[in-house]
C-alpha cells in the first residue's frame, strides 16, 4: 500500500486530507511538526510527503531541505496558505515537486498526489498507442480505430497529456500549467471549451467514451470501459 506522510498542524485540514487520501486507497500517517516530520520522513517506507509550509516549529520547506540533503528523492507536495506564485516558485525551488495553495479542492490534491506518485512515462516515443487510439506525435495526426482524428496541434498535446496519465483525474489548472505553460486561473471556461472540442473529436457518436468529464473536478482518460 502506498504510504503518504502528511505534515500539517491544522487539525481540520489534516482530517479532511487524511479522510480523502484514505478513501482513495492510500495509507496516511499524520504529524504536526517539522521535527517529527523529519524523523518519520527519513524512516523507510514513505512514498510521498505532503508538507504544510507554516508549522509550529518552523518552515515546512526546511523539512524538504533536510530530506534532499540526506539524498532522499521522495516526492513532496507542498501545501500553503501563502498562495502567491512567488511562494509557489520558492516551494518548488526548495526541492518540492508540486505546490498547492490553500484553499484547494480535495480532488485537485488527489490528482496531484497521483501525478507525483506515478510520474508519466516521459518516453520520447513519437508514437503513442492507447486502446483504439493511435497518435503520431511527429506528424501531428491520430486515429481512433482507423478513423482519422482531425486534431489541432494543441488538441494533440492535450490528448497526449491525458493518455500519458491514463486513469487519473487531470484538473483544469494542471492542463493550463502543463499543456499551455501558463500558471493562472482563467475567469472563463476556456479550458473546458478546448476539452469539449477534443472530446467530440475523439469520442464520436456511438463510440465508448475515452475522455470523461468528472463534474467539478476535471477529466479522466480511460480505456478500460
Amino acid at each position: 500500500m502506498t504510504h503518504i506522510l502528511l505534515v500539517e498542524d491544522d487539525h481540520g485540514t489534516a482530517t479532511e486530507i487524511t479522510l480523502e487520501l484514505t478513501a482513495s486507497g492510500y495509507d496516511v500517517t499524520r504529524c504536526t511538526t517539522v521535527a517529527e516530520g523529519g524523523r518519520r520522513a527519513l524512516a523507510d517506507g514513505v512514498d510521498l510527503l505532503i508538507v504544510d509550509r507554516q508549522l509550529p516549529d518552523g518552515e515546512g520547506l526546511d523539512l524538504i531541505g533536510l530530506l534532499r540533503d540526506k539524498g532522499r528523492r521522495t516526492p513532496v507536495l507542498v501545501l500553503s496558505a501563502l498562495g502567491s506564485l512567488d511562494d509557489r516558485v520558492r516551494g518548488l525551488r526548495a526541492g518540492g515537486d508540486d505546490y498547492l495553495a490553500k484553499p484547494f479542492a480535495l480532488v485537485e490534491l488527489i490528482a496531484r498526489v497521483q501525478a507525483l506518485l506515478r510520474r508519466p512515462d516521459d518516453s520520447r516515443d513519437t508514437r503513442l498507442i492507447a486502446g483504439p487510439l493511435d497518435l503520431d506525435l511527429l506528424g501531428v495526426t491520430g486515429t481512433r480505430a482507423g478513423r482519422p482524428l482531425d486534431l489541432l496541434p494543441r488538441e494533440l498535446k492535450l490528448l497526449e497529456y491525458m493518455v500519458r496519465r491514463t486513469g487519473r483525474i487531470v484538473t483544469r489548472s494542471m492542463l493550463l500549467q502543463d499543456v499551455w505553460g501558463y500558471n493562472f486561473e482563467p475567469n472563463s471556461n476556456v479550458v473546458d471549451v478546448h476539452m469539449g472540442r477534443l472530446r467530440r473529436k475523439v469520442d464520436a457518436d456511438g463510440e465508448a467514451q475515452l475522455i470523461r468529464n468528472v463534474r467539478g473536478q476535471g477529466y479522466v482518460f480511460d480505456i478500460t470501459d
Binding site: 512567488d86 516558485v89 494543441r154 499551455w180 505553460g181 501558463y182 472563463s188 471556461n189 476556456v190 472540442r197
Partner: peptide, 22 residues
Amino acid sequence: SRFAPVDLAKIAADACELHRPI
C-alpha cells in the same frame, strides 16, 4: 524579482489560441 525576458508575440498568440474555441 521573478521577471524574465518574455516574448509578447508568443503570449498574444497563445491567448488568441486559448480563446479561439470559446
